[in-house]
Computed example of a mutant assay.
Amino acid sequence: MPRLDVFLVTTGKFPSRQAAKRAIKAGHVFVNGSTAKPSSRVLLHDEVQIIDTPFEYPLGYSKMKALDEIIDSPLVSPGDLVLDIGSSAGGFLIYLLEHGANVVGIEYSTAFKDNLVEITEKFSSVSILFDDAFRMDPNIICESECIDFLVIDVTTDPVGTLKLIQRFIRLLRPGSRLIAAFKSKGNNILLQKIQDCVMRCGCDTIKFHNLDPSQQELHLVAVRR
C-alpha cells in the first residue's frame, strides 16, 4: 500500500514527489471521488483521478518549452550532453531529460535538494552537483569543448550571469548553443553591453527573448563560434 504521492510518481503521473504533493494539497487529486493527503495509502482497487493542474512541472519546464518553440532548430537531440547551471527545482532538467539529453546540473541552494534528488532517482541520465558555480573548477564537469548545450539561470545580476558565461563557455562545443537568463528587462545600453561581452566570449547569432513581459527577465540565445 504505497503513499499517494509515491504512487503518483511510480505510475508516471508526476515527475517528482514534490510536484505530486503540491497537486494533492491543491485539491487536484481525488481518491474514490474524495480529496486526500500525500500520506494517504492507495489500495489495489482504489480509483485515483487527477484533474488538469499547473503543478505537474516546475516553472522552468514551461520556460524551456517556450524557448524550444521559439527557436528554429530543436534545443537538444537525443544523447546530447547538457550543462544546466542553476537547476533550482529542476524544470529545465526535466524538459531536457524528456527529450533524450544527458544532463549535468549545478545548484548552490540546498532548498531544492529534495526535488533534484527525486529527479535523479527517476532519470538515469542526470547527475547533480551541489556546488557554487562562481567558485568551482569547471574542469570538474569535463574537458574543454565537450558540452552540446549550456544553460545558465541563476538568481544574480547581469554582471554575475556574464561571469558565469565567461567561466563555463570554454566547455561548449563550437557551433553549439548557449541560453542564459538575465534578471532584468534591460534597456538598449545594457543589452548592447551584454551582447558585446558575450561576443568577446566567442559567441555569435545573439538574440534576446522576453517570455513574459510582466517579469524582469530576458533569455539570451547565442551560438559559440
Score class of each variant (00 low, 15 high):
Tyr61Ser: 04
Gly27Gln: 03
Ile50Phe: 15
Lys25Asn: 10
Val29Pro: 00
Asn102Pro: 06
Gly100Thr: 08
Lys185Ile: 12
Asp5Glu: 03
Met64Tyr: 09
Lys183Gly: 06
Asp84Arg: 01
Leu67Asp: 04
Val82Ser: 01
Gly12Asp: 11
Val31Thr: 02
Ile206Leu: 11
Phe30Tyr: 14
Gly33Val: 08
Arg135Ser: 14
Val198Phe: 14
Ser16Pro: 07
Ser127Asp: 14
Ala180Gln: 07
Gln192Ala: 14
Pro58Phe: 00
Glu121Tyr: 01
Leu75Cys: 09
Lys183Pro: 10
Val48Pro: 06
Ala66Tyr: 09
Thr53Cys: 11
Lys25Tyr: 06
Cys201Ser: 11
Glu145Ala: 08
Lys37Val: 05
Ile194Thr: 05
Ser125Asp: 11
Cys201His: 08
Leu93Ser: 07
Asn210Leu: 13
Cys197Asn: 10
Leu171Ser: 00
Ile206Ser: 04
Asp137Trp: 11
Lys25Ala: 06
Ile140Lys: 13
Lys63Cys: 10
Asn102Ala: 13
Ser40Cys: 10
Cys203Leu: 13
Leu191Glu: 09
Phe55Thr: 04
Cys201Trp: 07
Ile70Phe: 12
Asn188Ile: 15
Ser77Leu: 15
Glu107Gln: 03
Gly33Glu: 12
Val103Gly: 08
Gln49His: 15
Pro74Gln: 08
Ser73Gln: 15
Phe30Val: 05
Arg135Ile: 13
Leu44Trp: 13
Phe30Ile: 04
Val29Gln: 01
Phe7Arg: 01
Leu129Val: 01
Arg200Glu: 13
Leu218Phe: 04
Met199Trp: 09
Met136His: 10
Lys193Asp: 07
Gly105Ser: 03
Ser16Arg: 03
Asn139Lys: 15
Asn115Lys: 00
Thr156Ile: 10
Tyr61Phe: 11
Leu96Ile: 04
Arg200Thr: 15
Thr35Phe: 07
Val126His: 05
Glu143Ser: 14
Ala111Met: 10
Asp153Cys: 02
Val29Leu: 02
Arg170Tyr: 13
Ile51Arg: 14
Phe92His: 04
Ile141Ala: 12
Val31Lys: 06
Leu59Gln: 14
Lys13Trp: 09
Phe92Leu: 04
Val9His: 06
Lys193Met: 06
Val198Ser: 04
Leu178Ser: 00
Gly90Asn: 04
Pro15Arg: 05
Pro174Gly: 08
Tyr57Ile: 03
Ile70Thr: 06
Val9Ile: 07
Asp5Met: 02
Val151Gln: 07
Arg173Glu: 12
Leu75Tyr: 05
Val42Met: 13
Arg225Lys: 14
Ser39Glu: 11
Arg225His: 12
Phe134Ser: 13
Ile51Val: 15
Asn188Trp: 13
Ala26His: 07
Asp52Thr: 13
Glu69Lys: 14
Asp204Tyr: 11
Ser124Pro: 12
Glu98Ala: 09
Asp131His: 05
Asn139Glu: 13
Pro213Trp: 09
Gly12Glu: 10
Val42Arg: 09
Lys65Trp: 11
Gly79Asp: 08
Thr53Gln: 08
Lys122Trp: 02
Thr161Lys: 06
Asn139Ala: 15
Glu143Ile: 08
Ala66Met: 13
Cys142Ile: 06
Phe30Asp: 04
Ser124Val: 10
Ile189Gln: 12
Leu59Val: 11
Gly90Ser: 07
Asp131Met: 09
Gly60Pro: 03
Lys183Leu: 12
Asn139Cys: 12
Val117Leu: 09
Lys65Ser: 14
Leu75Asp: 01
Asp5Ala: 02
Thr120Leu: 01
Tyr61Gly: 02
